[in-house]
């Protein structure tokens, strides 16, 4: 049987998305299942990402697997100039599965080609972070009971934000989505994705102002506007406080609205939103563990 990998969100079919969602639900009910007993999982973080790593390592531990690996490349042979090819070849001899995060784009696809065991991409530069997308989808499904007919507002850095790009691609597989993009001039959704939606006949709207248009939203997906993305620091100063969600803005929003954020946040969601029942970002992070248990089970054919 051909091994499965998860490198790009586009590698999975709609049926596989739904299977992952179903499994994530099972793991939420019953997170501790010894399906990985006797198995070794390599957790290779060529760049540090504490949040993602802890989520994966929790998922692996709850499945009863053992973890080997490193948390950043400074302490490993990588620093001594070993190629990615050689590191992956070696590790795939030791482990039953590889979870990897790497600063270079395409590194995960390449690792999957080199490795004899399944590879899960935990982020390759600005390219893909598919487990984040699946946990976002699980969060939407859980709070809305469906992935169809969603009006999704994406706010902040829509140009470089890989999470919004992947979510857009994945949600486009479902019935009748509507997308609303709220971003400053410099950080608008790239044409490539707008063209993708246009070709599928999916409606989208672009806005520069973060105003009461959000009253239509089922989901608000907030992202961080990062200073280093701006060529002109004055431009950053102009917009840095424009895309901040505050509690009073939620007054006339739909009752089913949920606010998502891939975390960590800086100031783009005011802390006064945290107490609002529409704030979902902390639960979203917890959903990551269940979703990753589901992904591992699916990739390793454990269920």
């Amino acid at each position: 049987m051909k091994k499965k990998d998860l490198i790009s969100i586009n590698d999975f079919t709609k049926e596989e998305y739904m299977r992952i969602m179903e499994l994530a639900g099972e793991f939420e009910e019953n997170p501790n299942q010894d399906l990985l007993q006797g198995k070794v999982v390599a957790s290779l973080f060529f760049e540090p990402s504490t949040r993602t790593r802890l989520s994966f390592e929790t998922a692996i531990s709850r499945l009863g697997g053992k973890i080997i690996g490193f948390t950043d490349s400074s302490s490993s042979s990588v620093k001594k100039g070993e190629t990615l090819h050689d590191t992956i070849k070696m590790v795939s001899n030791y482990a039953d599965m590889i979870v990897m995060r790497h600063p270079l784009e395409g590194s995960a696809r390449y690792a999957a080609e080199v490795s004899d065991v399944p590879v899960i991409n935990a982020g390759d530069g600005a390219n893909q972070h598919p487990t984040q997308t699946l946990l976002d989808m699980y969060s939407i499904l859980k709070t809305q009971d469906t992935l169809d007919n969603m009006n999704i507002f994406m706010v902040g850095d829509l140009k470089y934000g890989r999470t919004v790009h992947s979510l857009l691609m994945a949600m486009s597989q479902f019935e009748n989505p509507i997308f609303n993009f709220i971003a400053p001039e410099e950080l608008q959704m790239p044409d490539e994705y707008k063209l993708y939606l246009k070709n599928l006949g999916i409606r989208y709207f672009e806005h520069k102002e973060f105003t009461d248009i959000i009253s239509e939203a089922d989901i608000i997906y907030m992202t961080r506007v990062q200073k280093e993305r701006f060529s002109d620091p004055i431009e950053y100063e102009k917009v840095k406080n424009v895309y901040i969600l505050k509690n009073d803005m939620l007054e006339n929003t739909k009752p089913n609205l949920k606010i998502l954020h891939p975390l960590p946040r800086v100031n783009e969601i005011h802390t006064d939103v945290d107490e609002n029942t529409k704030a979902y970002y902390f639960t979203q992070a917890l959903n990551g563990v269940f979703t990753r248990e589901a992904i591992i089970s699916h990739i390793m054919n454990l269920k």
Binding site: T83, H85, L104, E105, G106, S107, R109, Y110, D124, N127
Partner: peptide
């Protein structure tokens, strides 16, 4: 960054546009 043969999907022939099999750009 590493010695790898490139691989592209041709998404447009005129003008030429190539989608990288690895980084997807």
């Amino acid at each position: 960054n590493e010695k790898i043969n490139t691989c592209f999907k041709v998404i447009s022939k005129n003008p030429i546009a190539l989608k990288c099999h690895y980084c997807e750009k």
